[in-house]
Design a protein around this nucleic acid. Structure first.
Length: 208
DNA sequence: GTTCGGATAGTCT
DNA sequence: GACTATCCGAACC
């Protein structure tokens, strides 16, 4: 299946959950980095008071959201860049925010980009972009054409998926508490995860 | 180990 | 001029 089909064949919350365990791959002149997606959030477009596209409000920043499934949407939050994938057909401004990844290969490259201990390397949406060395250059471009790829295989399968309200969405009524954040239960590379919730044996993945 | 406050810059009203 | 889809470090358990 191609990526555009994969990112448009289900409702966005289902896609956000299915993305857990899929592989992100970045090809750079210095080498390749791959990582497993551990945490996502769904943003549901015009109806979603927490979304940039609420009430179909188009601005210079959020143009990419109206493009086709598989378009990369990157925007800046203070000093950080945040990575999203557009879902659904062109004209439907929904997306999934990538909030955490587990490094798989290219770890030295990531630690060169972001000199932090492994456990603090990619456990947050801004942190993982630092580790990958990405800014908003790829905003509006399609996945799997340039340097950034989303691979459907190989994949890892979560033992259990946890849900919660989305991080940083406050004073938005029911949209603040809506269970649109998804993460691999027990995985260390999930934002705000507490030590006692981590499973050091499996990292929350089913055995290969 | 966990919580809290401040820094920070781009975007929109 | 207000408001963030964040991160870090200091302070306190």
């Amino acid at each position: 299946m191609d990526i555009e089909t994969y990112l448009s064949q289900q409702p966005t919350p289902a896609i956000a959950q299915d993305l857990l365990g899929r592989q992100l791959r970045l090809v750079t002149p210095a080498g390749m980095m791959t990582a497993w997606i551990t945490e996502t959030e769904a943003y549901l477009g015009a109806q979603d008071a927490g979304a940039h596209a609420f009430k179909n409000h188009q601005t210079a920043r959020n143009q990419a959201l109206w493009q086709s499934a598989g378009t990369i949407y990157i925007y800046q939050m203070r000093t950080q860049f945040l990575l999203n994938f557009v879902t659904q057909a062109a004209g439907v401004p929904e997306c999934v925010l990538i909030r955490g990844i587990e490094p798989a290969t290219g770890l030295p490259l990531m630690q060169a980009n972001r000199p932090q201990p492994l456990k603090n390397l990619t456990n947050g949406p801004g942190k993982l972009m630092q580790a990958l060395g990405l800014d908003k250059q790829l905003n509006g471009q399609p996945l799997n054409v340039g340097p950034l790829h989303l691979q459907l295989t190989p994949r890892r399968v979560p033992i259990k998926i946890s849900t919660s309200g989305r991080v940083g969405i406050v004073n938005k009524g029911d949209w603040s508490s809506a269970p649109l954040r998804y993460y691999v239960t027990g995985n260390p590379w999930v934002s705000q995860s507490r030590q006692r919730d981590i499973d050091p044996e499996t990292h929350g993945w089913q055995a290969l």
